[in-house]
Structure formats: C-alpha cells, structure tokens
Design a protein around this nucleic acid. Sequence first.
DNA 1: TCTTTAATATGACAAATATCATATAATTCC
DNA 2: GGAATTATATGATATTTGTCATATTAAAGA
Lengths: 143, 143
Amino acid sequence: MISTSSKYAIKGVLFLAMHSSEAKKIMVKDICTPINVPQAYLAKLLQELSRQKIISSTRGPKGGFYLSDENRSQPLIKIVHAIDGQRRMNACVLSLKTCDENRPCPLHKLVSPAKKQFIKSLKEKTIENLANNIANGISFLPL
Amino acid sequence: MISTSSKYAIKGVLFLAMHSSEAKKIMVKDICTPINVPQAYLAKLLQELSRQKIISSTRGPKGGFYLSDENRSQPLIKIVHAIDGQRRMNACVLSLKTCDENRPCPLHKLVSPAKKQFIKSLKEKTIENLANNIANGISFLPL
DNA sequence: TCTTTAATATGACAAATATCATATAATTCC
DNA sequence: GGAATTATATGATATTTGTCATATTAAAGA
Ligand code: FES
Ligand code: FES
C-alpha cells in the first residue's frame, strides 16, 4: 500500500519539521540516526523530495535540508505521491486494472471505505499537523 | 499490506469456491488462465494452502484442487495469514516495532481505524460469502 | 581564489519477492 | 502391475526493491 521508501521519507520529513528551519538546516547524517534509516538511502529520498520542491535544501557549509513554512503546510500525501507515484495508493487490493464502484473486485467493498478514509486523512493532514502531534506527545517518531 | 502472493491465493480460492466441489476437482492449469495468474506460481500457492488444510486436493487422474464445505466456511483472513504470516497484516504503517495505542506513530491515528475495519471484515467474511457476491453479480473476479 | 563542506547525480550491489523448471510421489484406469 | 495423470517438493532464475559507494557540483568562509 505504501512503500518502505515512503515510510522513510515521511519519517525524515517529520523529523525536519520538528528540528529544522530556514535558519537551522540539518544534514542527512544528523537525521538518519535518530529516525533509524540508512544514511545513503535517506539521502536519496530527501534529494528526490527536494527536487520536487516538497522540502528545501542548500549545499555547502552551513547547508543541509530544512522545511520552509510553505513546505510545512503541504499535505502528507504529497510525500507518498512523490516517492511512490500516484498510482500505487489508488490501486486495487487485488491488482485489477481499475478499481471502481462499477466493477468492484470481491474485496473492494471490504477495503474501499477504509482506504478512502486513509487517503482522505493523508490529503487533509499537513506535515505541520503531524509534527505538532509529536511535539505535544500525542504521537511518537523514532524507532 | 497484503502481498501479491496473497492476492493470487485469494483469487484462486474464490475461483475454486465458485467452480469446484468434492465431486468436481479442478487442476491448476484450468484455474490460472481465467484468474490471470502464472501457472507455476499459483500451483505453489495452492499447494501451500492445501498443506495448511485451507483448501483440499487429491492427485492423480480426476484429481485436482477443490473446496469442501468446511473449507468454504473459513474466513478470508486464513488465506492471508497462511501466505503472508500473522505479522504483516498487523504491522505498523511506518514499520515501528510495535503498533499500539500507547506509543502510536504519527500515522497511527490516521490509518489504524481503517485497518482495523479491514481486518475485521477479513475475519468476518467467509470464502463462501464472497463467492456468493460474485455469483450474484455484486462483485467480479477475473482480470 | 582556494579549501572545506554539504547536497546532487549516477550507478553498483544486495536482499526480498515473484516467476519458472524439473524431478518425485500418489492416484486412477486399463 | 503398468502407463497416464496430477499434486508435491525442491530449487533455479528473474525482477523489483532496498542499500551502499563514489565522483561531481554548488555554497561558504578565509
Ligand atoms: S476493485 Fe479491487 S479494491 Fe477496488
Ligand atoms: S504505531 Fe504505526 S501504525 Fe500503529
């Protein structure tokens, strides 16, 4: 449903949301350990997100990754779409060509409401929203 | 969330539910084409399910796979547990070690209700239930 | 302008998953 | 009992996904 890459990307972005700012950029090597993701892998993912303008970065000394205010206001789903593409999330559980109400697979009715709800959440909740939850002890990031 | 193998297995079992009986066994080569799954792959999966007594089989001429009445009354989740193991389905979306309410990851609240609901359906609905839906044109199997 | 620092780009490598192939064992029918 | 048939067992290959390594490019500061 959601790839390991996306999971890592989300972890990384949420970490940035909590600890970085335009004034305080963070290097991958300082992100990977606390969120428990291999450094080179995370680097690749953050680079991709940066290319897609979902997060921000600058290189050189004092450089690193960070989140602008605009970045923070983006919905979570942007991350997973950037990494997994648009299709994966919307695909049929049984991998039928099309997943729609007209010609539903046997599992469609079981899974569709649940999945719609999840996708809705991903579209509604912003990076900032989730970061706030962590900050407030409502949810937890590492490990 | 649910592996390709499980998808194939479910397709195969549902096909058996619709077309087989103790008196009418079906060979893999007659199942794989209509449900669009590679023959050798499907064979392996059905063999595994047979070993785990989730479906039935006999070899030799007039042999093949089939579903007994007892087989039909089993919940869907048995198939996915047999193929994917117990863990996969219950794992945290972000792959944290434990997924529980006490120390939820940032996505837990977004995905947990949806997933619980889906798992519940898989536990409640029997193979027969879904087969009936197909028979009644409520859902569709092939492709 | 030169050195250092960090992201970027590219591609090699490893592991997991999915797919295919072959030999063996059990059942039926003659 | 022997030939044909079909599941079973086992393992090889291919593809995808995840991981690692290296060289390049841009920014900062002296
Ligand atoms: S058709 Fe399979 S999940 Fe919608
Ligand atoms: S802790 Fe991540 S989904 Fe429950």
